[in-house]
Design a protein around this nucleic acid. Structure first.
Lengths: 207, 207
DNA sequence: ACGATAAGTAATCAAGTGATAACCTGTCAA
DNA sequence: TTGACAGGTTATCACTTGATTACTTATCGT
């Protein structure tokens, strides 16, 4: 299937290589989701052989689980300081904007994380993934709720906004905003400022 | 691959059969998304042979496009009367609740529609699907905005709520709410009333 | 009756896919 | 030096999957 010429003869220790493969898998799964991504694509992205990827994680499903978990954990970590602020000053509605900004920033920083997260949720009807997806969604919800002391509806609204952002990124709305004023309006409304930075280079109208 | 014994010798005309296959495809794609669903699964669901499905629509991608389009169109149709009301009485904030209720009702009525829609959006990075996904998202946005006369942010908030509902349904949150009080709280907050009806039979904790 | 056309199916394929087994080769302790 | 283990790869498999081709058989106008 795939057998990249080893770029260098020097070897990595397993832990290092593992991180590298996880990063590659994150990128690959972000694009295609669970079913739409082959282990070979991950391997190529990582610059290793396909059997190595499979053996390293046992199975494709196991690999996805790990990538999924890392993504959610990273998101939660990024929320942490803002949640601390909200916890200290619960009345300050403005801090929710800061939460949104944190999410948007993460998106600009590493969109793959959020896309992986979304694909995990979307593949929730697949039993192997679904249970984990529910667990993570619950964790996200309770963490935000408990740390912020917000009402369920406040938390719901925030998470909902995140889901829309994920969706817009998944359909590459920012890249195509230049060709569609209405889509641009929705995107800029959802992303707030900093969208322009996110857009990167636009894509021609045929895309 | 699949060759179901013809249940009856009587034939349908193509148009009828087409609708039947589209309904089956809707169900199948709702579960697995684009990549996670085989044409054979669609065929089995429809009770026809796999080659027939492919030939009838030209390709799997074409079939999905049609299913996707029907789903979005159906959703828009369902919004129509409520949008008319909002248009006539723009100040009445309560009508947005009615929009949400319309969406929830559609969800209870035929969750497949919304799941297909979501999977279409989620698969947006696949070029064949992405362009259509963006077109539809734009259509939904402009339609709601123009017919209601609402601000972009009002519309954004509404669509965001829809995306969360889709996600929760995709991960089968209602069915598992009984086993997880926090997930149940989020779900009941997102769905509003009528969730209990949606839950149907719960599923044991291993699911 | 009959033949043309539409509504299907059976058989088959080439490509792709996750996984396994067997093998190679740096690296490092003794 | 050497030998053993960790870090990889090559080769290969069984199975799936979308698609194509060729065939069968209802149905209906004449």
């Amino acid at each position: 299937m795939n057998s990249p010429a080893p770029l260098s003869k020097t070897r990595m220790n397993a832990a290092e290589r593992r991180q590298l493969v996880l990063a590659a898998a994150s990128k690959a799964f972000a694009r295609g989701g669970y079913y739409g991504t082959t282990t070979d694509a991950v391997a190529r992205e990582a610059g290793v052989s396909q059997p190595y990827v499979v053996r390293m994680f046992g199975s494709k499903a196991e690999l996805f689980r790990e990538v999924f978990a890392r993504a959610v954990e990273r998101v939660m970590t990024e929320f942490e300081p803002v949640l601390a602020k909200i916890s200290a000053d619960p009345e300050n509605e403005e801090l929710w904007g800061e939460m949104g900004a944190a999410y948007t920033q993460l998106l600009l920083d590493d969109r793959d994380l959020l896309l992986v997260m979304m694909h995990g949720f979307a593949a929730g009807s697949t039993p192997e993934i679904g249970a984990q997806a529910r667990t993570w969604m619950t964790r996200i919800y309770t963490e935000i709720r408990d740390r912020s002391g917000a009402t369920p509806d406040q938390v719901r609204t925030f998470i909902a906004g995140g889901m829309l952002l994920n969706t817009l990124v998944a359909m590459e709305a920012p890249q195509h905003a230049a060709n569609d004023a209405d889509l641009a309006e929705l995107a800029s409304c959802a992303f707030g400022d900093g969208l322009d930075a996110a857009a990167g280079e636009a894509v021609d109208a045929t895309g």
